[in-house]
Nucleic acid binder design. Structure first.
Length: 424
RNA sequence: GGAGAAAUGGCCGAGUGGUCGAAGGCGCACGCCUGGAAAGUGUGUAUACUAUGUGAAAUAGUAUCGAGGGUUCGAAUCCCUCUUUCUCCGCCA
């Protein structure tokens, strides 16, 4: 969420920039500024009344002490009026503030100046593509058939146990999942990230902090009995570790990595997009998160991109990097790059990572601030995160691209984690 | 799940109705002392909002002692609800 101050000072700029995200902010900003004026005058009046009340209360104490009971009772009457006013004003203020927040959360983050215009994914800009697509010939099988052939992923069994989108990994398939998780985690730790293993359910405050609530409520599984949400990504619990914290500028960068299962309802998805591993309700992912000084966050974004690129490269998968256009970039992000790998049997690009700089948008919701050395004023930190990596589509591409008549060849980088070099 | 105790600033901890945003200690920052350091010593050390100020600084006001509500002219202090932590019992990987 944008800060009020920022909106007050950059109204026209915001309206102009949000056109890139195909968002018309004119009306909502007008309402916000109007409400903010009300908020300030209400607060001012209330403070003045409260101040008066406090002063009179002290007088009453003095009067009682010196035995002037009648006078004291007289002042009490005046206080009753003040209290009445304060109560009304306080209720009004609460209402205004909640309305104001309700409006503020509707404004998306300002896109970075380099975000290209566009309506949807077709307008994303390819930064580069690397690696060679394997030539599999006619007989190439898509991963869901390979999974069945080698009995490593059982989609039907998942349906029996839970429902569609909850596959059961078996045998070497299960081991391969563990191998990928460990490999990705080790790589992140080597790159200076410290590992955390967070809860898989979060409360409302956490959901609000990273921006899943209130707007994306329908995308999360909601445990209504306890009002908890299954995390759609480790980003949520990990970033919220620093909710309500004031850091020192010297603490930056804070680098964290986490493996978690992720749960997504994927309401509205259907058809070939959800075939096999392409889109699941539960999947595994290793996430990297950084908190950084505002002046350095774009360097950090680059660093994270390099990290993800090295991962994909080390698995010998053909990949491309896309810079998301205004129409495809998420509500909370200022700049996002997607990584896609090519699954050669489906002949499709599959998104395996999304790396974003949220600048101070999440930090403002999180109240995640920092102080410069020797300064009193707090400033908002910048938050960034990226998948490094999401497993199912990596697995899909590995299975499809590495299929041979003898079985599926495990990439070198993973062999010390799997303990086998072929799935047959 | 049942019974009891507790929750105060970065940390420890005092504070049972007004003079308390809160003693004291630790930590931290800056200064003095020192050849340098330690010890000693002095000063400072929460956050948010509002007003004045072009901004920054500054000044004043308001709120915040787990959260929310109540009693009272006045609440860290009394009452209620909730949350969390600890101890005991029960259940349990």
């Amino acid at each position: 969420m944008l800060t009020l101050r920022y909106i007050q000072e950059n109204k026209d700029f915001i309206i102009e920039r949000l056109k890139i995200k195909n968002f018309n902010a004119l009306e909502i900003i007008k309402q916000i500024l109007e409400l903010d004026n009300q908020r300030r005058s209400t607060q001012n009046n209330m403070d003045n009344n409260q101040s008066e009340l406090n002063k009179l209360s002290k007088e009453i104490g003095q009067l009682f002490k010196s035995g002037k009971v009648e006078e004291a009772n007289h002042v009490k009457d005046r206080n009753a009026d003040l209290k009445e006013n304060i109560k009304k004003q306080s209720e009004e203020l609460t209402k205004i503030e909640s309305d104001l927040t309700g409006l503020l959360v509707q404004i998306p983050n300002i896109p970075h100046e380099s975000v290209p215009p566009g309506k949807g994914e077709q307008d994303n800009v390819e930064v580069r593509a690397e690696g060679t697509k394997p030539d599999l010939g006619e007989k190439a099988l898509p991963h869901w058939e390979l999974a069945k052939k080698y009995d490593i992923i059982d989609f039907e069994l998942g349906v029996k146990l839970t429902g569609s989108g909850f596959p059961v990994y078996k045998g070497k398939g299960a081991k391969l999942q563990r191998a990928l998780i460990n490999y990705f985690l080790d790589k992140a730790i080597d790159a200076g990230y410290s590992e955390v293993l967070p809860p898989l359910m979060v409360n409302e405050d956490s959901g609000f902090g990273t921006g899943q609530l209130p707007d994306k409520e329908g995308q999360m599984y909601h445990v209504t009995a306890d009002n908890l949400y299954l995390i759609p990504t480790a980003e949520v619990p990990v970033t919220n570790i620093y909710r309500d914290e004031i850091l020192s500028a010297r603490d930056f960068p804070i680098k964290m990595t986490a493996y978690t299962p992720c749960f997504r309802r994927e309401a509205g998805s259907y058809g070939k997009d959800v075939r096999g591993l392409n889109r699941l309700h539960q999947f595994d992912k290793v996430e990297i998160v950084q908190l950084q000084h505002p002046e350095k966050s774009y360097d950090t974004l680059q660093e994270m991109l390099n990290h993800v690129e090295n991962l994909v490269k080390s698995l010998n998968l053909p990949y491309r990097i896309l810079k998301l256009c205004g129409g495809d970039i998420s509500f909370t992000s200022a700049l996002t790059y997607d990584f896609e790998v090519f699954a050669a049997a489906q002949e499709k690009w599959l998104e395996v990572s999304s790396v974003s700089n949220f600048e101070s948008y999440q930090a403002n919701r999180l109240k995640l601030r920092f102080k410069e050395d020797g300064e009193k004023k707090t400033k908002l930190a910048h938050t960034l995160n990226g998948s490094a990596l999401a497993l199912p589509r990596i697995l899909a591409a590995l299975l499809e691209n590495n299929q041979t008549p003898n079985g599926i060849v495990v990439p070198d980088a993973l062999r010390k984690y799997t303990g086998f070099d072929i799935i047959d």
